[in-house]
Design a binder for these strands. Structure first.
Lengths: 197, 197
DNA sequence: CGCCGAGTTGAACTGAATCAAGAAACGTGG
DNA sequence: CCACGTTTCTTGATTCAGTTCAACTCGGCG
């Protein structure tokens, strides 16, 4: 009980940092949250299915990826304190191309789509949070697209290293390289070169 | 006057297709729209400035691009009946990296940021339209990122050709190639090969 | 110990970039 | 309407970043 409240504080802060909810709105929202636990390697969301949840990570880390010609291509990573979902599928109610896997043991609050949508319709504040969340997701995707268009693999790696050094510690070469849009061997070589500054 | 109403029908339809507005909401929105005309080559938005408008194109076409090492890289094209803006800057109120230029003579309705934001705050329906617009923008960016990660230049060209053949007619090789993330010479070669199927 | 998957290294290959030159299309002014 | 310069497009030759395939190293674990 105390445990659960401590976790709820984190998600409440994450929401309030976008836009504050009135107390009754928050209570209603929190009442619909479902706790979910995933072991390393489990799927939060599978490709070919419709996304039914918006997740908030209490602990752990996840990877959003898709498959193409048997290859596994990483779109994004998420960590404790962040929202995750197969956003495209959540919005469109079409089958997801995106898989979300737990990179380590992960605990999340899940908000079912049905309630999320009702919540958007019922409360203007909720709708605003939905807008801000979508806008924030948009910005992430645009930045990454701009990087892919304008930078070499080496520059993309250097930038990632600068902006998110923790990521480079914890994520496998295989996953990092597919996030950067290159092969593991190439990342390995880039790393070797970048060591001697 | 009749002319103006004819144009307003288009933007009203575009909005209603996201989510309908009440009559009074629409009247208030329409009252804030400013007509702007651009000659071919004019800028709707310049890099280094804060985006102050959400545009709706009554006619014409635009290109969103950014500069890097003197190179000019295309993020997106927009045509009659679509909304355009330097979305990142509009949202964050930070300087835009994105330039928007008119590819031909273009007429647009412009909604000033100040009013747009007030409109979001004042009406739940408006906020919802803002959310849906952001979600739609997100989807476009995700799709393009997935293409850049997973497909060769040739595949990206073939897909674009399939989905948007008009674009290939009207847009210069220089702009199309930078949208695809390749050099004009490469696109020229891809085109030659794809002629003999 | 010995296996196994992840990471690294090497060598050959390839898709696309770059550099350079020519051809076609375009606009502007006479 | 033509002539000119300018930009855009194409083609060729070369280079290069990153891929592919294969072999080897390393650390963890049964």
């Amino acid at each position: 009980m105390k445990q659960e409240n401590a976790d709820l504080v984190k998600i409440k802060q994450a929401i309030d940092s976008l836009h504050p909810l009135a107390e009754n709105e928050w209570q209603e929202f929190a009442g619909k949250l479902v706790i979910k636990k995933f072991n390393k390697g489990d799927f939060l969301t599978r490709g070919g299915q419709i996304e039914n949840y918006l997740y908030f990570l209490n602990s752990g880390a996840t990877r959003n990826y898709f498959l193409r010609d048997g290859k596994d291509l990483t779109v994004d990573f998420h960590f404790e304190g962040e929202f995750v979902t197969a956003y495209y599928s959540l919005i469109t109610r079409l089958d997801s191309d995106i898989f979300i896997e737990a990179l380590e043991d992960t605990e999340a609050y899940a908000m079912p789509y049905k309630f999320l949508n009702e919540f958007y319709l019922k409360y203007h504040n909720a709708e605003r949070i939905g807008r801000l969340m979508a806008e924030y997701q948009y910005i992430k995707r645009l930045r990454k697209e701009m990087n892919l268009l304008s930078k070499t693999a080496e520059e993309r790696y250097a930038e990632l290293m600068r902006r998110n050094p923790a990521l480079i510690q914890n994520i496998s070469v295989k996953h990092l390289s597919s996030y950067l849009g290159i092969q593991p061997e190439s990342l390995s070589r880039i790393r070797k070169l970048s060591l001697r500054n």
